[in-house]
Design a protein around this nucleic acid. Structure first.
Lengths: 136, 136
DNA sequence: CTTATTGCAAAAGGTTTGCAACCGA
DNA sequence: TCGGTTGCAAACCTTTTGCAATAAG
């Protein structure tokens, strides 16, 4: 049976209050400011728990440590090839539904049953695109 | 200036000869059978090089070590939530082009410039779907 | 009182790096 | 010969685990 934990609540709220996709380490440093006794193992353990219950999502970036997303609603991630920042891309419901159908169909092509999907787009973010243009 | 290396060639060919998505370790064990002197560091170094030149692709599975794909052509990966096997899903050219346009458009929504994309589908593969149905 | 959760430190797992020897051009 | 590449071992970074102490129900 799961019990309430001050730490777990703090981790969930800290992640939800952010718009970026922090690593466990970043989140740990953040939380330590308000809760100095917390240990990194507690952060990892609770992030795992929260993923299992679907309250948050673990995302694997192209390189570096895993990142976490406080928004479990399906959306698309854009990762910049230059600064490695990750941005969210939301699409409207009709488009989501259309995409879901398409994904289900694609899975059926190999006899599988799709449950969820994950779309990543890579390229140059606004900032890095600009910088690239200036330098050329 | 890059030089030819027997090891790099062997790594590339070994990966291309497979239809699955091996880890660096698996590839290393495989190659050691024919080339016992090879070191794991050489495998990692060359896999990185081959990724940089776009000859192969590194893929991040949901858990466990990174995997490598000898086919750099864009395609979709299906990862089984149960056995964690990764399968390729190919779509035809017209559909690919359509999807490319869509992705370009989505990136523009956040002012970014898309270069490539990566679509993952999760669920139950053929085998595990069957097993699941038997057990219920 | 019972059991989930914590913090710590140590271990594990995967990948990278420093370096002298080696090999390709 | 020159500089890229190798194999080895050690280092590194991220994540997990064992354990006694603590806190929730």
């Amino acid at each position: 049976m799961k019990k309430y934990s001050r730490q777990r609540e703090m981790i969930l709220q800290s992640l939800r209050n952010r718009v970026d996709h922090p690593t466990a380490e970043t989140l740990y440093e953040d939380i330590k400011a308000k809760m100095p006794e917390i240990g990194i193992a507690t952060v990892y353990r609770n992030l795992s728990d929260l993923c299992e219950t679907g309250q948050i999502v673990k995302i694997k970036s192209k390189n570096g440590p895993d990142r976490f997303d406080g928004n479990p609603e399906p959306h698309i991630h854009f990762e910049c090839d230059s600064c490695h920042e990750i941005y969210d891309i939301y699409i409207h419901d009709v488009q989501t539904k259309k995409m879901d159908n398409e994904i289900q169909r694609l899975a059926e092509n190999i006899g599988a049953e799709a449950e969820s999907s994950n779309i990543w787009i890579y390229g140059f973010c606004k900032k890095c695109k600009l910088l690239k243009n200036i330098n050329n």
